[in-house]
Amino acid sequence: MNRLIIGLLLLLASCGPSSKKTDKPEAETLEAPFKLPYELGKPVENYTLPKELKEISGLTYFKDDKLLCVQDEEAVVYVFDTKKGKIASDYGFGGYGDFEGIEYVNDEVYVLESNGNLFRFKPESTQIGRTKTDLPEKTEVEGLGYDPKTKRLLIAVKQGKGSADKAVYSFDLLNKAVFRDMSLNDEQLKAAGIDPETYKPSGIAVHPVTGDWYILTSAGKRLVITSRQAKIKYSEPLDPKLFRQPEGICFAPNGDLYIASEGDGKKGYILKFAYSR
């Protein structure tokens, strides 16, 4: 009888105060290892670009076998046919400038200028819209993406002052308002093996399957993957022989990855990497 009472007391004790230790979700303290679903050293396709895109600075998925590309000196969007390996058509939207990003959203093309201005138009339309995003002064941007979950364009800062440095802003397409979405600090970058001095984003894209943010840096030749909550999930240096000057990044709807590089004295090119779940 005494043994039964002692056993019950021990059982009650094991179910008591120790449960308080699990108040904090395990996911906050321990993240599962991240496996990159691409072999960045083994592109499945290499598309050599014509002279018009020697200085390619951005690209976005358009439709089957077609990408939209922009170069940094001329207000022209080129439709590159990956199946035929040539430019299928082009759309002019102004004169000259410093154009650093492009995104195709809801049948409209958005082109980002390095000062943060956004140009908007529908393919084959003569109506061109231009929006000032009112980013902080002396902020230079160089990457444009789109997050379908928030329905906002993502604007990656290449160089800024104060809180604008190493930040990603977003532009709400419905309210035409700018938000400071996410920012990485030097401690985070160093912990991920990234030199903060070389972290200067040149492209940004949202993975269509996982929702992760893929940030491309040309100066440091690196791919950085983060969550929306500004946590670095993965980082990998890029082979400079394979990525001469990586400037643009986008995904196909099935998850295949495209990375564009400027010619750097030679022809520009786009590499395709197959998505492996």
Rank of each mutant, 00 (worst) to 15 (best):
A88V: 09
Y110G: 03
V111H: 01
G94S: 04
Y110I: 03
V109Y: 01
F99I: 07
K86Q: 14
I102V: 13
E108I: 10
G92P: 11
K86M: 14
G101P: 03
G97P: 05
Y96G: 07
S89G: 14
G85C: 10
D107S: 15
G95R: 10
F80Y: 14
A88N: 07
L112C: 08
G94K: 06
E100D: 08
G94L: 07
D90L: 15
V109N: 00
V105P: 01
L112N: 00
G97M: 05
T82C: 09
K86G: 13
L112P: 01
G101R: 00
T82I: 15
G85H: 06
E108M: 11
K83P: 06
E108R: 13
V79L: 14
E103M: 11
V105M: 08
E103K: 06
E103P: 02
F93C: 05
E113F: 08
K84V: 04
G95V: 05
D107L: 11
D107C: 10
Y96E: 10
V111P: 02
Y91R: 04
K84I: 09
V109H: 04
Y91W: 12
F93N: 03
V109D: 04
G94W: 09
D81Q: 06
V109I: 15
G85A: 07
A88E: 15
Y104T: 00
G97R: 03
E108V: 12
G92V: 08
G94C: 07
V111S: 09
Y91D: 14
V79H: 13
D90G: 06
D90T: 13
I87G: 05
G94N: 05
V111M: 10
F80L: 08
L112T: 02
S89K: 15
Y110Q: 01
K84R: 13
N106W: 10
G94D: 07
Y78R: 06
F80W: 08
S89W: 12
K84Y: 09
K86L: 12
F99T: 01
K84L: 14
G85W: 05
E103R: 09
T82G: 11
F80D: 02
D98M: 06
S89A: 15
V109K: 01
K83I: 05
Y96K: 07
V111F: 08
T82S: 10
I102E: 01
D81V: 01
Y78T: 01
Y96V: 11
G85T: 09
Y104H: 13
K84A: 14
Y96T: 10
G95I: 11
K86C: 11
F80H: 07
K84H: 14
G94Q: 05
E103S: 12
E103Y: 03
V105N: 03
V109R: 00
I102N: 02
T82A: 07
E100I: 08
Y104G: 00
I102R: 00
V105R: 01
V109L: 02
